[in-house]
Design a protein around this nucleic acid. Structure first.
Length: 311
DNA sequence: AGGCGATCCTGAGGGC
DNA sequence: TGCCCTCAGGATCGCC
């Protein structure tokens, strides 16, 4: 399921292949995946434009064309954006292909994709999303995109302690709920919220406003380091994620807590606990992640009962 | 007003 | 083997 690292890895892998490439035509199989369908009908979805840059904020990917238009791609849970050559795939991979563009290349882009100069690439850009939690949003200008992204919190990959501190100020909600709110910090999803909180030794139910400055600093550092490591590895990829060329991410699981409810904590060996918060599976170590506001120390309560397992 | 939960959607996986 | 049920969760909307 794509989170920020998957989107960043997708951006890095798709940008070299798309720069200078022109979107010649588009086939929209399912209009409901497009925000504001019907708008921008004369030049829909970047058709006729040449890709000049790619950008990312949080989990949103933006493709810009040389005429100033922008398309934001949200992958949701099961979305993918791939470059494809040859016959479309059979079977289930051939389903849920909601938007397909035909690509025409410049000489540089063509040579990258191994086609003859000036020839039609025979390549397609495909937006696929079985569960349809993702979608495409067209913008007329970079300014419109800027306005939309300004409503989101700071990008999680580079979030500074001070920025996180001010975003959390006065928020009484559980810290995990706050992290999942894209207007607080953009790009933290369920998996990395649990992982970052574990790394920082913070209980997911702690009130966001109750965190001390040093804890927020530690949390910001954990978010940055976990997301950047995962981005470099191509995303954590449980099952659905594919990069621009249909490759899954690094199969190595680096998760310390996510999906490990009821299993031993890798740090202290006590049983990891699974709860639901805002309807989301949430896993934490009851020993390493204190709920109290006490400074996390080395003393452990011997009276603490055996931690309950998940579900 | 802020926060929580219901909702959307399909495929994987477990149980029988 | 095959059917049925549950679960997964990002973003949005409505309710408390």
């Amino acid at each position: 399921m794509p989170e920020l690292p998957e989107v960043e890895h997708l951006r890095r892998s798709i940008e070299p292949a798309l720069l200078g490439v022109t979107l010649a035509s588009v086939l929209v199989a399912r209009r409901s995946v497009i925000d504001h369908p019907g708008r921008d009908l004369d030049s829909p979805l970047l058709v006729g434009g040449t890709i000049s840059s790619t950008h990312r904020h949080g989990k949103q990917l933006a493709l810009k064309t040389n005429d100033g238009r922008v398309l934001v791609v949200q992958l949701g849970m099961t979305g993918s954006l791939t470059i494809e050559r040859g016959a479309p795939p059979d079977g289930i991979e051939g389903r849920h292909r909601h938007v397909v563009w035909d690509l025409v290349g410049s000489s540089r882009a063509v040579s990258r994709l191994g086609a003859r100069v000036g020839a039609r690439l025979g390549a397609r850009l495909v937006f696929r999303d079985p569960r349809r939690f993702g979608g495409l949003t067209p913008f007329e200008s970079a300014l419109e995109l800027e306005r939309a992204w300004s409503r989101l919190g700071p990008d999680a990959l580079g979030v500074a302690g001070a920025a996180l501190q001010s975003a959390l100020a006065g928020r009484k909600r559980p810290i995990k709920s706050a992290l999942l709110d894209q207007t607080v910090v953009a790009g933290v999803g369920n998996i990395y919220a649990d992982e970052s909180l574990f790394a920082a030794g913070i209980h997911p139910l702690r009130s966001a406003a109750s965190l001390r400055p040093d804890q927020v600093e530690r949390l910001a550092a954990s978010i940055r380091s976990i997301l950047s490591q995962a981005s470099d590895r191509g995303g954590s990829t449980l099952r659905d994620y594919r990069d621009a060329f249909g490759q899954p991410g690094d199969a190595v699981q680096m998760h310390q807590v996510y999906g490990r409810g009821g299993m031993p904590c890798l740090r202290c060996a006590s049983t990891l606990r699974g709860i639901r918060l805002q309807g989301r599976a949430t896993v934490f170590c009851p020993l390493c992640q204190h709920l109290s506001t006490r400074r996390t120390g080395t003393s452990r309560s011997a009276k603490q009962g055996p931690p309950r397992g998940a579900r």
